[in-house]
Write a protein that binds this DNA or RNA. Structure first.
Ligand SMILES: [Zn+2]
Ligand SMILES: [Zn+2]
Ligand SMILES: [Zn+2]
Ligand SMILES: [Zn+2]
Ligand SMILES: [Zn+2]
Length: 410
DNA sequence: CGGGTTAGCGCCCTCTGCTGGGAAAAA
DNA sequence: ATTTTTCCCAGCAGAGGGCGCTAACCCG
């Protein structure tokens, strides 16, 4: 009979304050105390009090004895509760049982999923009481509040006088300025330096020096660029040609001034001119290491296209090896509508075969052009972008921040 | 039966640290 | 003037701590 009772679902003890019922009087009493707030089990070492003895014991382990009965077999983690150890074990196994219904994120525990879901619902429960800014996570708000308060933490770099306002930024500083990849060479004296910090310190020692001497006269320049244009006064070259009237200039600045004085701002597609070897020499030092076509297309152009940063109607031309210039904007636009952007960029990649991209062009206000030269082909994209900087990604998928701009006058 | 113990589910909080966007500053 | 670098900051995931409550189990 007793066996029957313990295993039956009989719940004879009903709560008077809600509709729940319990098997034993004791569990009813515990439950009833949650209604009344009665907490018979008081902690002897602090003010805490609990409805059940079990809660008290757990509290004492957490706050006073730090006894952690559940040990991890893989590391030295130990926990008060078994469920915490189980949760911990998922960090070893990588198990992620909780899947987001809106994206492919999966979480190792329920809380992270719940927190993640806010990015789909747009919920931002944490609000700054000073400026009203809202955040999805409490710590984002906490970090934000620092910008209002005067006493920000200071993280001092041990290798230089730099200080940062947060640990992460100091770490970035360390790897950016104090970690050695390739040695950097000073352009003025050819000395090499192991990291960026010592390199920059060295550069300062050249401040004001005219290190770039002309070998045909006494002239000396502060920079290579200035020397390059000076050398032209000896040869009489004027490599900057106005493509509208044919006037020639020795310096880019002068060509620019000429255009602004005598020509209205050009807003039509300007066909790509053939490469100018003389100028190419000057820009050699600015050409970065080759990127693969895929990197460029995915990292920069494709993203820009997706984000609509190429302006209303990107104008794309392809320069064939024989010098023939083909305007493919229309084709690409209709392709984009038919297949989506990925397809379009694949089309470009196909046009350019699997050769290496050797140059990636820069940006500016108003009309700007970028070229993606691949093997014998050069594709140029003429945009109406108003944004400041372009980004690309390196071979590890890390954001490379800026794409090297082009110096040449096309 | 009563009281303690253990598992278990759930809720919520904090600390931590990486990433990438964008503005300002420097070149 | 434009391009490159630096600084600053929000977004967001990983890991863990503590508590509320209940059901099952154990044992005198
Ligand atoms: Zn009740
Ligand atoms: Zn206590
Ligand atoms: Zn472990
Ligand atoms: Zn999601
Ligand atoms: Zn604020």
């Amino acid at each position: 009979m007793r066996h029957m009772k313990t295993h039956s679902n009989e719940k004879p003890h009903k709560c008077t304050m809600c509709d729940r019922a319990f098997k034993t009087l004791a569990s009813l009493q515990n439950h009833h105390n949650t209604h009344t707030g009665v907490r018979p089990h008081k902690c002897k070492q602090c003010e805490a009090a609990f409805t059940t003895s079990g809660e008290l014991v757990r509290h004492i382990r957490y706050k006073h004895t730090f006894e952690k009965p559940h040990k991890c077999t893989e590391c030295d983690y130990a926990s008060v509760e078994l469920s915490k150890l189980k949760r911990h074990m998922r960090s070893h196994t990588g198990e992620r049982p909780y899947h987001c219904p809106h994206c492919n994120y999966a979480s190792p525990d329920t809380y992270k999923l719940k927190r993640h879901l806010r990015i789909h619902t747009g919920e931002k429960p944490y609000q700054c009481e000073i400026c009203g800014a809202k955040f999805t996570q409490s710590n984002s708000l906490k970090a934000h509040r620092l910008i209002h308060s005067g006493n920000k933490p200071v993280y001092q770099c041990e290798l230089c006088p730099t200080t940062c306002g947060r640990r992460t930024d100091l770490k970035i500083h360390m790897q950016k300025l104090h970690s050695s990849e390739k040695p950097l060479q000073c352009k003025k004296c050819l000395q090499e330096f192991p990291d960026r910090y010592s390199y920059k310190m060295h550069i300062k020692t050249h401040e004001g020096e005219k290190c770039f001497r002309c070998d045909q006269c006494d002239y000396a320049a502060y920079s290579m660029r200035l020397l390059e244009s000076h050398v032209l006064t000896h040869t009489g070259e004027k490599p900057f040609i106005c493509e509208i009237c044919g006037a020639t200039f020795r310096q880019k600045q002068l060509l620019r001034r000429h255009k602004s004085l005598y020509h209205t701002p050009e807003d039509d597609l300007i066909l790509v001119e053939q490469a100018k070897p003389k100028r190419a020499r000057i820009t050699t030092e600015h050409i970065s290491t080759p990127l693969t076509a895929e990197q460029v297309l995915q990292g920069s152009l494709l993203n820009d296209m997706k984000e609509g940063k190429l302006g209303e109607a990107p104008k794309v031309v392809i320069v064939h090896p024989d010098g023939r210039v083909e305007e493919v904007t229309r084709q690409l636009q209709s392709l984009a509508q038919q297949h989506g952007l990925e397809e379009v960029m694949m089309k470009m990649a196909t046009v350019n075969e699997q050769s290496e991209v050797w140059k990636l062009g820069g940006e500016g206000r108003g009309i700007s052009r970028r070229e993606v030269g691949v093997g014998g082909y050069t594709a140029a994209i003429v945009t109406c972008s108003t944004t400041q900087t372009r980004r690309s990604h390196d071979e590890n998928g890390h954001c490379e921040r800026t794409v090297r701009g082009m110096e040449t006058g096309w």
